[in-house]
């Protein structure tokens, strides 16, 4: 009889556990079904010079100011490059959580530019397994300098295009990497030996230092540099620091490229890291919410 009692006690004890365990298990099963989409692979829509896979959220407007100063090797007379700068002002908007577009004006070659970026897939873990996030970037650039070429001034001669497939993976909460195969087309090039189209391969990594700061390294490898430009050019290499303060993201970096648009920093980076051809640069991003209708709230 004692044995029976013990058995009963065990049984009821077991039951008592299962009652709470039961719904806890059901809850855990439900939670495991939720696909965990990766967010914040990078802090901003740019890594340093190039675009990251990140987009603006729907209804958010990003006002951007980007600067590249002169080279550090230009000496004390030029205050190590700070006397001289190229800049870009831009407005970029998230039309949906997957699609953004932007316009900008840069001082270098008085360039007007527009771009679109679309998120094709997002990295996801949990019930759905997608190893990488992929975005497509496409930009168009208009050189608006007064025409000083012997050729006739066709509008089409002023245009250049960039296409990039941005493929990124957030390996851990702190570490992300991206590769960016890129295709550039220029309608007009300086010489018949120079090709209108060329490819570049970007590689970038991001390592978070604290929750609000991260370091980035970005490199674009360009095969056949002599086919891209008549003047000797170098592959762009940049090292940067992201600092985030509320609605701002401040990116400060050193890079060997002086220009800011994709077609241009990939084909016109004439400075070399190894002889001090390094530019200090920064990007400032300020985000405003223009349209918050999509963000639902609980009834009071």
């Amino acid at each position: 009889m004692i044995r029976l009692l013990i058995a009963l006690m065990f049984l009821f004890n077991f039951l008592k556990i299962t009652a709470q365990d039961d719904i806890d298990n059901l809850l855990n099963e439900e939670l495991e079904k939720i696909p965990d989409y990766t967010t914040a692979t990078f802090k901003a829509t740019r890594i340093i010079n190039g675009h990251s896979i990140e987009r603006m959220q729907k209804g958010d407007l990003d006002f951007r100011i980007a600067h590249r100063f002169g080279t550090i090797n230009s000496g004390a007379y030029n205050f190590y490059g700070l006397d001289y700068s190229s800049n870009q002002l831009g407005l970029e908007y998230g039309f949906s959580n997957k699609f953004m577009a932007g316009i900008s004006r840069s001082t270098y070659q008085k360039t007007f530019a527009g771009f679109i970026k679309y998120s094709i897939v997002r990295q996801c873990s949990g019930s759905k397994n997608i190893p990488v996030s992929i975005s497509y970037f496409s930009g168009m650039y208009i050189n608006s300098l007064s025409w000083e070429n012997n050729r006739k001034d066709f509008f089409s001669s002023r245009l250049a295009y960039a296409h990039q497939l941005l493929i990124a993976r957030k390996f851990s909460p702190a570490f992300s990497a991206q590769i960016s195969p890129s295709l550039i087309h220029r309608n007009l090039v300086s010489d018949k030996d120079i090709s209108n189209d060329f490819v570049a391969f970007g590689l970038a990594v991001r390592q978070k230092l604290t929750v609000r700061t991260a370091i980035n390294i970005e490199y674009f490898y360009i095969p056949n540099l002599e086919k891209v430009s008549k003047i000797k050019i170098f592959c762009p290499l940049s090292l940067g620091l992201d600092i985030e303060t509320g609605g701002h993201v401040f990116q400060v970096f050193i890079t060997n490229s002086f220009t800011i648009n994709e077609h241009s920093f990939l084909s016109e980076t004439t400075d070399n890291w190894f002889d001090g051809g390094i530019h200090l640069g920064f990007n400032i991003s300020r985000v405003f919410t223009i349209n918050s209708n999509n963000r639902k709230n609980i009834k009071e």
């Binding site: 709470q20 719904i23 806890d24 059901l26 809850l27 855990n28 439900e30 939670l31 939720i34 965990d36 989409y37 967010t39 959220q57 958010d60 509320g246 609605g247 985000v287 405003f288 919410t289 918050s292 963000r295 639902k296 709230n297």
Partner: peptide, 16 residues
């Protein structure tokens, strides 16, 4: 009672 949520499902009115 057992309740749970994915923290990433929170939606906000403020940007970022």
């Amino acid at each position: 009672i057992a309740a749970g949520m994915a923290m990433k499902h929170f939606e906000f009115t403020l940007p970022l």
